[in-house]
Computed example of a mutant assay.
Amino acid sequence: MSEQTTELEKEFELERLILFSDAVFAIAITLLIIEIKFPHVPKGASNSEVLALFTPTIIGFLAFMFSFFFIGLVWSRHLNIFKYLRTYDNGVIFYNLLFLFFVVCFPFSASGLEHFRPSFFLPMYIYAVNVALVFLTQYALCNYIFVRKKVLSKSGYEPEKKYMLLKSKYFAISICSALLIALTLFIIFPDYGYVSLSGLYAFAIIWRIMKKRLKKYKPKPIVE
């Protein structure tokens, strides 16, 4: 009876961990839109003045849209990882909190994009570093559960867990490699900030290569 009670308590604690994570995701998304303020437009302002006033708001809203869907993507991957989690330990709590820390940093890094301009690329790099750290810590969490502490995950489902682990790993490699290329180009050509945007093309190419490698590990659907 005591063993059964302990298992039920463990399941309840695990559910609390998942609910806490979901709450952090929800708060991060909510804070994104709270940061966007409707600009004050003075009476008699010309069209060019109105456009100038709305430009930061438009950029902020675009950053919100991108961040919203990005956080949604990260949440869905987090959901898939925890689907195979049987129990937890302090390591899971640590890596999950580290991952959530960078998720909840998005309202700050996204708000900085409103100040982005051709001569000031720093907000773009802060945002890109935030994205990279989210995927790195998510991979670290995935690796801890499926590789370092296999006993924490449910038995079986090995192809699915391996695919999920490699997908997290390859995506993190693609993001970090593209960011490194962008930073290198910016250092070499500091007066031509837009050349660092080639990091986006680098990401597309690297991720395409990684997807081809990942394809052979994709689990086959079960035919009933």
Rank of each mutant, 00 (worst) to 15 (best):
I126T: 06
C105Y: 12
L141A: 09
V195W: 02
L197G: 04
C176T: 08
K150C: 03
Y125L: 10
L179H: 04
L122A: 12
L113H: 02
F108I: 07
M124K: 01
P118W: 00
K150R: 01
L133P: 14
L100T: 09
T137N: 12
F120W: 12
F108T: 07
M164E: 12
I173H: 10
A172Y: 08
P107N: 07
L179W: 00
F135V: 13
I173S: 15
V103D: 03
L152G: 05
V131R: 15
P118Q: 04
H115C: 11
L141E: 03
F171G: 09
S196P: 11
K167Q: 12
L136S: 11
E158H: 03
R117V: 08
Y125E: 02
L122K: 05
S168E: 11
V147H: 10
V134M: 13
L185P: 08
I188C: 03
K162E: 09
L185F: 02
V129E: 01
L152R: 01
P190C: 11
D191F: 02
Y157G: 00
E158W: 08
C176H: 13
L183P: 00
K149V: 15
E160I: 03
P118L: 08
F135H: 02
V129C: 10
Y139W: 09
I187R: 04
T184C: 11
L133Q: 11
F108M: 15
L183G: 00
F135N: 05
L113G: 09
G156Q: 06
Y163D: 06
Y170T: 13
Y194C: 02
Y127W: 01
T184Q: 08
F106I: 12
R117P: 13
F120M: 05
A140V: 05
F120V: 03
F171S: 15
E158C: 04
K150P: 12
S153A: 11
E158M: 12
Y144D: 05
G156R: 13
M164H: 13
P123N: 00
S109E: 14
L100H: 06
T184N: 06
S177G: 12
G112S: 05
L183H: 04
F189Q: 05
V104Q: 07
I187E: 10
L183K: 07
K167F: 04
F108R: 00
S109L: 11
V134T: 11
L197V: 07
L152E: 02
V104R: 02
P190E: 10
L165R: 15
